[in-house]
Design a protein around this nucleic acid. Structure first.
Lengths: 327, 327
DNA sequence: TTGTACGCGTTATCAA
DNA sequence: TTGATAACGCGTACAA
C-alpha cells in the first residue's frame, strides 16, 4: 500500500505538502504542485491509513453500537439506522453484542476506548441499581474525556445525552386501545425485572388501568417468556386481553394461546410494543416505535453534533389480534 | 490515558521493558522488574492503544462482516456467530451493511483495508457476471496481500476459502418433502435474478422435480416478493404446493394467501428455506441452515487458521404449513 | 508557498 | 536481562 512518503517522492514534493493536499488541509498549496500530488496519488492508488490518522488525531472514525442481541430486530433496526448515516460519511459501525450481560458491555466499552472510537451508542436500557454501574460510569467518563460522543437510546444511569421514546405513554396508549375496545380484565406480561424499560412500560399500563382491574404476569423480553406467560394464564381464568411488554413476548403468547385452541382475538385480544417486523408478519397489534430513526438520530448527534435529549413520537398500530369482546 | 512511557517512568524502567511485560513478549524479564511494571500499569490503569499497536503490527483486531442487511435474520445470525467467537478473543466485529448494493460492498471493503482488518467475512452470495467483479477482486487481493484472511459464506467469484451450505441439496430436500406428501404441481418462487444462491436453489428444485411438473414464479429475497408471487399464483390456477427461495418470501406468500382466504396447508402447502426465527414464529416448514455455525466457522478460520472449504449440514424441519393433499 | 522535524503509542532490532 | 532507537504513516507547528 502506497504511503504519503511514496506519493511525496513520486510527486517530487515534501511529505508535508503531500499530506496537505491529500488530507484536505486548509493550508495553501499552489495549483501546480497540488495537481502533481493528486496525479501521483491517483497513479499509486493512495489511500490514507486510518490507523495512523486516528493515532495522531486521537480519534478514529469508529462508532460503537452496544446492543443486547443483534438478532433481536429491535436492536438490528437501531444498528441499521446508525450505519445508514455513518457509512456514507466514511465511518465504521461496530455492532457490539452484549448478550444482555453487563460484564460483556463493559468489555466492549474497553475495546472501543482502546480504538479511540468517535462515538458510542447505547441501544438498550440499563438496570436499576446495577452492580456494574460504577465501572460503567468510569469507562464512559474515560470515553468522553477522550473526546468520544456517547448517546443513550434508552434510559440509563449515565451522564450522557439521549434520544428516547416515551415508554410509559406507549404502554398507556396500547392499554387504552384495549380499554376502548371494551375490555376490562387486562393482563400485562412484564419485562425482565430491574430494567428501566420494563418498569416504565409497566407504569404506563398501570396508569391507564387506574380504577380497572390490572393483572400482572412475570415475563421477560423473549419469545419463550411469552409462551410461559400463556401457560400461566391458561391455568387460571383467561383475561379479556393481554398486553405484552414487547412484540417478541406477545408473539410467544399469541402462538401458545392459539396452539392451545384459544381464539385470538375472539376470546382474548393480544397486543405488543415495538412494532418490529415479526409483528407485521403475524398481524399483531402493536405500538410502533421509531427504531430506525433512533439510530439515525444517535449517529447525527455523534457525527454532526445534532441536538439531543429529545423524545421521538410513537403510534399505535391496530391489527388483527385485537378486537371488541364478542358476545 | 496512560501510555507505555508513563508506565516505564513510574516503574523506573525503559519503555522497551515495559512493552515486553505488558505486551506479553517472550523476551526474558526479571521477576523483580516485571512485578514493578505490572504494579505501575495497575495503578495507572494502563491499556495499550490498539491503534498504535495495529499501526506497527500492520494488522488490527478488527473483523469485518459484509452483510446485505443486518435486519435480515439470515445475516444477523451469521454476524452473531462471528461475534460470539471474536469478542472473547478481544476482536471487534464490524457489521458492514451493503443494502445489497455491490458499490456499497466495495466502499466498505476499502475502509476495512484502511483499518488493516484482520479478516473479512462475506456473508452473502455474489452475482453471476457482476460488473464490479474486477474492482472487487482487486480489493480482496489487496486485503489478502496485507495479511487479512478473507472467508466467503456463500458462493462468490473470489479467490478465497469458504464455508458453505449445499443450497442445491437444501432445495431438493424441501421439494422431495413436498413430493413425498403427495403433491405434484409444485411452484418455486425464485430469488433475485443473477445471484448464485438463487440459481443453486432453483437447480435443486428442478432436479427434484425431474419428470414432474415444475412451475416457476419470479420473486426476490424479501417479504413483498412473496406477496406478489401469491397474487400472481392466485390469478392462475393454484398449485398444490409452493416452495419459496427463502423464509422471508415464504412468509410473504403465506400471509397473502391466507388473507385471500386460501387454506394453508389444506388447499396449498407452503415451505421455505433458511429456518430463520420468523419461520418458527409462523410455524413454517423450512430447511434449517446452520447460520450461527457458519459465522462461528468463519471466525475460526480467521482467528485460529481453522480448515476451510467445508460444507455444513442442513436439515428439513416439517411444520404446520405443509400437509398431504386433502381429498 | 514549501519544507523540516517532532509526536502519536507501539513493537522490534541491535547493543550493552 | 535491560535499554536506546528506529520504524509504522500521518498531522502540524515552526522555519524558510
Amino acid at each position: 500500500m502506497a504511503s504519503l512518503a511514496d506519493i511525496s517522492r513520486r510527486a517530487g514534493v515534501s511529505i508535508a505538502t503531500a499530506s496537505r493536499v491529500l488530507g484536505g488541509s486548509s493550508h495553501p498549496v499552489s495549483d501546480a504542485t497540488r495537481s502533481r500530488v493528486v496525479a501521483a496519488a491517483e497513479e499509486l492508488g493512495y489511500r490514507p491509513s486510518e490507523l495512523a490518522r486516528a493515532l495522531v488525531r486521537r480519534t478514529s472514525r469508529i462508532i460503537g453500537v452496544i446492543v443486547g442481541d443483534v438478532v433481536d430486530p429491535y436492536f438490528a433496526e437501531i444498528a441499521r439506522g446508525v450505519d445508514d448515516v455513518a457509512a456514507p460519511q466514511g465511518h465504521l459501525t461496530m455492532v457490539c453484542n452484549t448478550d444482555r450481560r453487563p460484564a460483556a458491555e463493559l468489555a466492549h466499552l474497553d475495546v472501543l476506548r482502546d480504538y479511540h472510537a468517535a462515538g458510542v451508542v447505547f441501544a438498550g436500557s440499563g438496570y436499576e441499581h446495577a452492580g456494574e454501574d460504577a465501572a460503567l460510569r468510569h469507562v464512559v467518563e474515560q470515553l468522553q474525556a477522550a473526546g468520544a460522543a456517547v448517546v443513550a437510546l434508552a434510559p440509563r444511569d449515565l451522564d450522557c445525552p439521549s434520544v428516547l421514546v416515551d415508554n410509559r405513554a406507549a404502554a398507556r396508549d396500547a392499554t387504552e386501545h384495549l380499554l376502548a375496545l371494551g375490555h376490562r380484565r387486562i393482563a400485562f406480561v412484564e419485562g425482565p425485572p430491574g430494567l428501566h424499560t420494563s418498569a416504565q412500560r409497566l407504569e404506563g399500563f398501570e396508569a391507564a388501568m387506574a380504577g380497572a382491574d390490572p393483572l400482572r404476569v412475570p415475563g421477560g423480553f423473549e419469545f419463550e417468556a411469552g409462551a410461559e406467560a400463556a401457560a400461566r394464564l391458561l391455568e387460571d381464568e383467561l383475561p379479556d386481553a393481554v398486553l405484552a411488554v414487547n412484540d417478541e413476548v406477545a408473539i410467544g403468547l399469541l402462538t401458545h394461546l392459539r396452539r392451545a385452541g384459544v381464539d385470538v382475538p375472539g376470546r382474548v385480544s393480544v397486543a405488543g410494543i415495538d412494532d418490529t417486523r415479526p409483528a407485521r408478519l403475524v398481524d399483531l397489534t402493536s405500538v410502533s416505535l421509531p427504531l430506525h430513526e433512533l439510530g439515525v438520530a444517535a449517529a447525527r448527534v455523534i457525527l454532526e453534533g445534532a441536538a439531543a435529549d429529545t423524545v421521538l413520537p410513537h403510534r399505535l398500530v391496530a391489527r388483527g389480534t385485537t378486537a371488541s369482546p364478542s358476545r
